[in-house]
């Protein structure tokens, strides 16, 4: 039994009423899958199914009439990821749609905000930042899909954005000094909270990258980088430990506001 299972203090939902979770995304699904395969998290009470594809194929997944379908070229990859023969994704088949990464590169938004706000003429009010966050998020197709699914009430939607690039010390990023870190921290906190608020208003539970995994506000700590990330220059992908933290965050969100297994998520639909 893994350490997570031994020390697990969170009550698990009864096994006979497993919450059906579809984890939808791009190559960032990898770290979650590894976390589960390595037993770093306790998934009891959850029936987890992956659905998605990596980069070029991910761009060929399209939501139409409430169903996400792959273009023919992406079918094979989707089936590989899913492993259960599910060619089309009907969000209503699940209690929870968990978007992982899926091209919502929060780091780009935070970096944009940091650069903008560091200029003498660049200050933005919170009201403007909120508008910027909404405009930025809605440029990403997956975010629009998430919003559409949430509005439809087909499933509860939770979103974890693309993890911040791993700190390697080789890409020009440096550890900020205390003063800079303070300023940067305020802006980054504003960025995260505005994204959460925007997503919340779209009926999406947004999970920001946990502080424990972040360094300098805008980078993922090196210990969470994928194997050999520095040598391979892969600052994008993360390891199983990171995946475990993400899943724990997801489970935390679901336990804080429980979802009834087998019931379609009607909250957003009722609100509309």
């Amino acid at each position: 039994m893994c350490a997570a299972k031994k020390n697990c203090s969170m009550p698990s939902p009864p096994a006979d009423k497993a919450i059906r979770i579809c984890i939808y995304g791009d190559s960032h699904l990898g770290c979650l899958k590894q976390a589960l395969d390595q037993g770093l998290v306790d998934p009891r009470g959850y029936d987890i199914e992956f659905w998605g594809a990596d980069g070029p194929y991910f761009r060929q997944l399209r939501l139409q009439d409430g169903v996400i379908r792959p273009d023919p070229e992406a079918e094979e990859r989707v089936l590989l990821v899913n492993g259960r023969g599910r060619k089309f994704l009907r969000p209503g088949d699940f209690d929870v749609m968990f978007f992982m990464g899926a091209r919502l590169r929060a780091g780009e938004f935070l970096e944009f905000l940091r650069r903008r706000m560091s200029r003498s003429n660049g200050f933005l009010s919170r009201a403007v930042v909120m508008r910027v966050a909404r405009g930025w998020a809605n440029r990403t197709r997956s975010y629009r899909y998430a919003g559409e699914i949430a509005r439809s009430g087909a499933a509860r939607v939770v979103y974890f954005p693309t993890p911040l690039p791993t700190f390697s010390g080789r890409d020009g990023a440096t550890q900020p000094g205390p003063q800079e870190a303070g300023r940067c921290g305020d802006v980054v906190a504003l960025g995260w909270s505005s994204l959460s608020e925007v997503a919340g208003s779209d009926g999406i539970d947004f999970i920001r990258q946990p502080d424990a995994t972040v360094t300098g506000g805008l980078r993922t700590r090196a210990e969470f980088g994928c194997a050999g990330f520095a040598e391979a220059g892969d600052l994008v992908h993360k390891n199983a430990r990171f995946g475990a933290i993400v899943l724990e965050q997801l489970f935390g969100v679901l336990e804080a506001a429980p979802v009834r297994a087998g019931a379609q998520h009607r909250r957003a639909a009722a609100a509309n």
Partner: peptide, 14 residues
């Protein structure tokens, strides 16, 4: 980046 994404996913799911 696309190549790295492919490797990442294949490692995990294949």
């Amino acid at each position: 980046e696309d190549v790295r994404c492919e490797e990442e996913l294949l490692d995990a799911f294949a």
